[in-house]
Structures are given as structure tokens and as C-alpha cells.
């Protein structure tokens, strides 16, 4: 009776997730094996592998995959490099400052993704803040290509997803016994050695979580590459949405989405294997 009453608590959430996450994803899987439609229909009768075949046949689509994955990896790396000193700083800051720094780190989350990306277009555009400032200073003649290319997209994505890297790092650093660092010092280790041999390895669970989160978010992001990349940086995710919404090719779009998801999954698995921690 007690178990039954308790299970009523989880029932709505379980139903919601099963009906509107599990079943729809199964639908995508099924859709990817359907035959392409004709005469403006999103899909045709019967099943086939045409969706997958189309992806591998056309270099335009096939090449977008490694490029997207690389974009995700670079973004993740940039985030890690930018986030680590910040996480260390906040973990070591006094209480009074911590709230403010925390607020700054979370600020990108509190503004919508459209506005954030839009902010970057104002900054990076040909007549944007950076270019016009540099031109006024006489440092450049023609505007630097900051936007509508991989550089701009990586920069904007790193900004958008930086909080997702800082937060896991911070929680790993904060759950670390401060006496561990002192112990290393008492044994004769200098600050950089402590970082290399103790702090960083102990924060590895945070590094892992942060990297996986940022990588997955980055390769599946849509708005930022669309606005900052100006449709000139073709990520697989952009092509998926294009195929589904504009071209109305549902089996092909689904197949492409699944290929992207599986590739990302493989990379995450390899990463997890490489950074496996026996001690945890």
C-alpha cells in the first residue's frame, strides 16, 4: 500500500517522459527507415534505406559531419581553457564576491539564446563594434572576417555554453577537501605541481561532465550557428532542420539526425574511456 501510494508520485513524470520523449524518439528512428515521399509528401509508403543512402552519397552532407564534430570539439576545448581559471577563482573567492562572480558566469543563461547570438552579431559584424573600433583606430583598412565563419561560431558557442563548463568544474572543485591541497604542500609540492598532480586530477569528474555537456550542446545547437554563421557555416544540425522543415524530407532528415547523434555518442564514449577514473 505504501509502495503503491509512493509510486503515484512518479507516475505523471514517468508518463510524460515515456509518452513525449521515448515514443517520439522511437518515431524518429522509424521515420529514418521510411521511404522518401513524392509530390510534396513528407514521406512515402513502405520502408527503405534511402534516407541513409542520400547522406552518404552526397559529399555536401557527408562532409558536414566531420566539420560539425570538429566544431564541437574545438568549442569544448576553448570552453575548458576559459572555464578552468574561472572555476578555480570562484571556488577560492570570499563569500561576498562569490555571489557576484557566480552571477556573471550565469548571466549568459539568463538571456535567451537568440539575444545572446544577436549580441555577438553586433560585436563581430563587418561594421560591428570590434571592426569599427579597429578601423577608427586606423589599425585595419578592411573589416576582419570575425563573423559568418568558423571563428565567429566557435567564439559565440563558447560564450553560450561556458556556464555549462564552469558549473560542473566548480562543483568538483568545491567538493574537494581543502586539506588535500595543504597535504600536498606539506609534502613539499609547489603551487603548479599541486595543480598538475592533485587539483586537476581530483577535479576530473567535473572536467568530464563539463566536456560532455558542452560537446553535446554545441554540436546540436541551431540558433547560434544560424545567426552568427549566417548560413555560411553548414553544420549537420542546420542541414537536419533544413531537410525537415524547408525541404520536407522527413526520412532523410531523421536519418541525418540519427547519424549525428550516433557519431556524437561514439566520440563521448571514446572521451569517457580515455578519461576513465579508476579511483572514483
Amino acid at each position: 500500500m505504501r509502495r503503491f501510494r509512493a509510486s503515484l508520485l512518479i507516475l505523471p513524470a514517468a508518463a510524460l517522459i515515456f509518452l513525449f520523449i521515448v515514443l517520439p524518439y522511437v518515431t524518429v528512428l522509424v521515420m529514418s527507415f521510411r521511404a522518401p515521399g513524392a509530390n510534396g509528401e513528407p514521406y512515402g509508403p513502405g520502408f527503405g534505406l534511402q534516407g541513409y543512402a542520400q547522406f552518404f552519397d552526397e559529399g555536401y552532407y557527408l562532409w558536414s559531419l566531420p566539420q560539425s564534430l570538429l566544431l564541437g570539439i574545438v568549442t569544448t576545448f576553448v570552453c575548458l581553457v576559459l572555464a578552468y581559471p574561472i572555476a578555480l577563482h570562484i571556488a577560492g573567492a570570499r563569500r561576498r564576491w562569490r555571489g557576484l562572480l557566480y552571477g556573471i558566469v550565469l548571466s549568459p543563461l539568463l538571456i535567451g539564446i537568440v539575444i545572446r547570438s544577436y549580441g555577438w552579431t553586433i560585436l563581430l559584424g563587418n561594421s560591428g563594434v570590434i571592426n569599427s573600433t579597429l578601423r577608427d583606430l586606423g589599425l585595419i583598412q578592411r573589416p576582419l572576417p570575425l563573423m559568418y565563419n568558423d571563428f565567429g561560431v566557435v567564439l559565440a558557442l563558447s560564450h553560450v555554453f561556458l556556464p555549462f563548463m564552469v558549473l560542473p568544474l566548480l562543483s568538483a572543485l568545491q567538493s574537494m577537501d581543502p586539506a588535500v591541497k595543504q597535504a600536498a604542500r606539506s609534502l613539499g609540492a609547489r603551487p603548479f605541481t599541486i595543480f598538475r598532480r592533485v587539483t586537476f586530477p581530483v577535479s576530473m569528474p567535473g572536467v568530464q561532465t563539463g566536456c560532455i555537456l558542452v560537446f553535446v550542446l554545441a554540436i546540436s545547437s541551431y540558433v547560434t550557428p544560424a545567426l552568427v554563421g549566417g548560413m555560411r557555416v553548414k553544420t549537420t544540425t542546420l542541414l537536419v532542420v533544413d531537410a525537415l522543415i524547408d525541404q520536407f524530407q522527413w526520412p532523410f532528415g531523421s536519418a541525418m539526425a540519427l547519424i549525428l547523434a550516433v557519431s556524437a555518442g561514439v566520440i563521448v564514449l571514446i572521451f569517457a574511456r580515455l578519461t576513465a577514473m579508476k579511483w572514483n
Binding site: D177, A179, V180, Q182, A183, A184, S186, G188, V198, P201, V202, M204, M277, W279, N280
Partner: peptide, 14 residues
């Protein structure tokens, strides 16, 4: 050149 034992032991978990 001291040896110190901490209340939490502060062993390196990794």
C-alpha cells in the same frame, strides 16, 4: 620539512 596528518586525512583520492 614537516610531516602533517590532517583530521580528514586528506588522502589524494585519485
Amino acid at each position: 620539512d614537516i610531516g602533517m596528518v590532517f583530521q580528514s586525512y586528506a588522502l589524494f583520492p585519485h
